[in-house]
Each structure stands twice: as structure tokens, then as C-alpha cells.
Amino acid sequence: MEWYLKVLKNYFGFSGRARRKEYWMFVLISTVISIVLSLVDLGIGTFDEETGSGLLSTIYGLAVLIPTIAVSFRRLHDTNHSAWWLLIVLIPFLGALFLLIVFCFDSKEDNQYGPNPKAIPDDNAEIEA
């Protein structure tokens, strides 16, 4: 949960780098929240079958849109790619598959976007140990 909150605190942070753990924990927790909100929408009757979305899940999706894009930019920076590579997702299926593979890459050295985030001690080191 700390990684999720870390991304939300860095709401407009498009520069720098994001570790794999930061990106994937944000995606995981955000997906779980979206599913729960969709179920709540279904239960309270705010789910629209025609559009396939509900009021609460739509509001949440709009609220985390910018942090999702920002952490994706930082994840691409960590793999030594320009944030412009995010536009490859516009290619149906293959673009998303390519980004999935790139987001799984590990980074080992400093690059033009900043120092390796794994080399920087973080506050969560005590929790993981």
C-alpha cells in the first residue's frame, strides 16, 4: 500500500524514475480498487450496461488517470526509454504487449533520467527486511 500512496503523493511527477515494484504495486492496487468499485456500482445500481462502467469506478478512473500516466513515464525512464514510447500503445494489441514487456525490464545503472532508484535507500527497506 505504501507504493500506491507514494505514486499518489507524486501526482504530477513526470520526471525521474520508477522501480518495477513501484509501478506494479500501483497497478495491482489500482486494479483491485477498480474491481471493487465496479462491484459496488453494480450493487447500488449505478452501473450502466450500455457503457460498461459505473459512476464510482468512472470517478476513480478519472482521479488516477494522471498518476497512472506519470508512473508510466517514470517507469519508461527507468528502462532508459523516452516517455514518448508510451504512444506505442496506440498500436492495437502489439503496442500494449510491447509496453508490458518493457515495463518488466530491470534497470541496473544510472541514466539520463536520474540515478538508479534501487541504489537510493528508501523508507520501505525496514518493512521488506
Rank of each mutant, 00 (worst) to 15 (best):
T58C: 08
S34Q: 15
G61M: 07
D41P: 02
I91Q: 04
I120Y: 03
D41Q: 04
S107M: 04
P121L: 05
F73D: 01
S72K: 05
Y11E: 06
R19S: 15
I59F: 15
G95S: 07
L76C: 07
S38F: 00
P92F: 08
K6M: 08
W84I: 08
T79M: 03
I120L: 12
T46P: 02
K108A: 02
Y60V: 10
D123A: 14
K118W: 00
W24A: 01
E128M: 15
Y11A: 13
T68Q: 08
P121W: 06
F73I: 11
L90V: 12
G13T: 06
V40E: 00
G45R: 05
W85T: 09
L90P: 05
M25K: 01
F98W: 13
K6I: 03
W24I: 03
S57T: 14
L86A: 10
D110K: 03
S15D: 12
E50M: 08
S82C: 07
I29S: 12
T31P: 01
M1K: 12
R74W: 01
A125G: 03
R17V: 03
W85F: 14
H81F: 14
V27C: 07
I91D: 05
I69H: 14
V71K: 10
G13W: 03
F93L: 15
N80E: 11
I88M: 13
I66Y: 04
R75G: 02
L87Y: 11
L39F: 13
N10K: 15
K118V: 02
D78I: 11
V89C: 04
L94T: 13
F47S: 12
F73G: 01
S30R: 05
L94M: 14
M1L: 09
I69C: 11
I127H: 11
D78L: 10
N116T: 02
I69M: 08
K6Q: 11
S15N: 14
D110C: 02
N80Y: 02
F98T: 12
A96S: 15
T31F: 14
H81Q: 09
S15Q: 15
L100V: 07
I29F: 15
D122V: 12
S57E: 13
Y23A: 01
D110T: 02
D106P: 04
G95F: 01
